[in-house]
Design a protein around this nucleic acid. Sequence first.
RNA 1: GCCGGGAUGGCGGAACUGGUCAGACGCGCCCGACUUAAAAUCGGGUGGCCUGCGGGCCGUGCGGGUUCGAGUCCCGCUCCCGGCACCA
Length: 842
Amino acid sequence: MQGGTRGGAAPAPHGLSQREAFSSLEGDSREAMDDRYDAKTIEERWQRVWEEARAWHVPNPDPTADRSRKAYVLEMLPYPSGTLHMGHVLVYTIGDVLARFRRRQGWTVLHPIGFDSFGLPAENAAIREGGHPREITERNIAHITREMKRMGWSLDWDRVMAAHTPEYYRWTQWLFLRLYEAGLAYRKAAPVKWCPRDQAVLANEQVHDGRCEYCGAEVEARNLEQWFFRTTRYADELLDALEGLDWPERVKAMQRNWIGRSEGAEVLFRIEELDRDVPVFTTRPDTLYGATFFVLAPEHPLVEEIAARMDDPEQLRAYVRRAAAKRGEERAAAEHKTGVSTGFHAVNPVNGERIPIWVADYVLMDYGTGAIMAVPGHDRRDFDFARAFGLPVVRVVEPAEGESELPYESKERSDRLVNSGRFDGLPVPEAQRAIVAWLAEEGRGREAVSYRLRDWGFSRQRYWGCPIPIVYCERCGEVPVPDEELPVLLPELEDYRPQGIAPLAGAEEWVRTPCPRCGGEGRREVETMDTFVDSSWYFLRYCDARNDEAPFKREIVDWWCPVDQYIGGIDHTTMHMIYARFFMKALNDIGLVGFREPFQRFFTNGWVQLGGTKMSKSKGNVIGPDELLEAYGADPVRLYVLFIGPADEDMEWTDEGIEGMVRFVRRLYRLVSEVAERAPRGEPPASALTRKAHETIAKVTDDIGRRLSFNTAIAAVMELVNELQRAGAEDPAARFAAETAVSLIQPYAPHVAEELWQRLGHERLWAEPWPEADPALLTRDTFELVVQVNGKVRDRIQVEASLSEDELVARAKASPKVQAHLDGGEIRKTIVVPRKLVNFVL
RNA sequence: GCCGGGAUGGCGGAACUGGUCAGACGCGCCCGACUUAAAAUCGGGUGGCCUGCGGGCCGUGCGGGUUCGAGUCCCGCUCCCGGCACCA
């Protein structure tokens, strides 16, 4: 624990205060041994019982069984870091409450767990520590598994998977081959950063100011053949299907932004000197007359053609090289726009005007067509460029009234075209239609849609990942490895540091393999898959986790899926969650699954903060679950992380808070123990305490099941416990109230609940049906009628629920307090809200 | 710039469909009981101002509005958080 290092705010180091708290828990020697809450003993005992009963294992149902009461509860696949952190504690506790709750409601619950065990962190840790990624990964998995079990999460460990095991990645490869066959996985040349001195591919983050992070050499762009999934084929569906998902609005908004659909037109410009047509994409076809120059991205294929015909191409080529070495962010962050004039010209199809062609890195090759018509009068970026290089700026859109400075980017309905030939005077929307229609007629353009979403480049020049099952043969070319030869095992490697094109290239014996098609000499693909491929289908594997003939059986997957409740961080919204959605659409089209969306309902957890900021090692404000478990026990920690605040918002951890939760658990423990011993048995009377218990059942059931409002459910149980305590252990309803409280708190604090349930003379609370509120007890036969005069509350009177509206008014009017305020006035209006209030308006 | 979310006591938060003097539950703080004392525990209090102790007035970021009634709905702002962003 990072004692005393967090912001200097805490008077005492955490370690200390927790140890004090711990000793005080044990401290009270005067209480009977039996009535002392000892988290450790209780938790170990019940974890053993559950393990022996295999309580959380769920067998696969008959695929024809009714699936109206199934719940697939899933937390995002964890990367197996050395130890659990507070984020895990929150996420898995949320899922666990839901899983335990639904099980007790008689649902068939799938609540599995696994590990995202391929990937850079393990590889980097291995490079740092000098071990093998596999050893480090497996050690971490073993450790984190123990911690997860100590948290008491009801996970089905019989279905555990880990992405780095051949049993799993065999099927990752198998699925890749299906996508490959369907034309959804393909290779194309794409630029990577290459350090000529280290002879290695660099990750984007390893490039600073166009230089290698390690040796400082100037980085080059290399076009490497890389693997892509055709995510863009589903761009429209990925966007439109968001509508039907029960996800938080901000998550949907993020995906919409990410997909970035925009409607416009593609327009063909003729390049005069090459006598070639080049398409551009624009969202403003109405501004076509305002195009005063034309820009190609530095990576545009025509740039080299142009350079080849220039008298002095060196300046242009140097610019292209410089642009290639820059990272995307560096290009975007550039203070001033840069570019080079080519001396070539493009012809505007609408008026035949010749405009100069420039090459500039503010135009991106991978959006639109990699070329633009520049309209500086109505586009900020083109305007900046025009200013920098003294290019003309023309106005072609004018607001209906008033002045407007250029660049004028807005497009009000009333804005009209000027300087646009025969389209002058047309309002912007009509002008767009008219110009596109004219272009289409002339064969110079058409309506077009462009997306920000790119195809997913999933090959990595790294060792610790799933090998891509492809062999390159001189005669046959690119050949997929046949299914029977899967898995393509990741070879053991002495040196797996990034070097050359990819570390696997160094495993010469592994690389050389006969071509599966012709038997001639072949070489294996040496790149590995992005770990997001592993996590795009893991939730399918859980359904049929021990199948060694296929990744899964379709009927079984179709029975369990889609995931009913997905839980995880909002930070995975745009990558993982889009990739997994893409996978389901692809697998459905291939016929491997019967649905198209993986996650029906999604809950985003907040972050546990300390001292106002997210816990992080670098800030030194980390509280580890290990220490908390030691100091307080799993139940109080589970209760507290869900009690601090709404689980989907960031929350501030405080030592006082968790200590308050320990107090609550101890109070519950003592109170229920007393009730178990002394409370009368038999049917509870229809008393206020009994009613409170039923109201609490209704509230907690709704809070967990419908609202996912975990904090308010705990508060409701606390209210019940408070009322029980006031009534005392001898109250005739005490036993029922205690049983209800224990039963309702069980999803949150399963160990102590089980212990208390046993004390109350029962067993197996985890399998006990969830209590149901008696509706007869929820509707009271009297209620408190609020009487207002002019909207101000003047009295509250107990009345029978059976009274009619007229009778309510009569009672209200009869109240002396109300009379005092009605005095002298004439009642103009009377509002009656049944079962709530009467309001007299004077 | 575009898009999304938010602002309630000393603090975390509650109030779900406009309807119980807004503030549940917890933390903190204050008072009391138990104790030689302390801790623990238990009981009580705790939005602000005024009070003749009956109560009165004000109060949910700011300014307007709708309504018998607004934390909740509408319009206009301020600030905070998040996503996208040379995306043509």
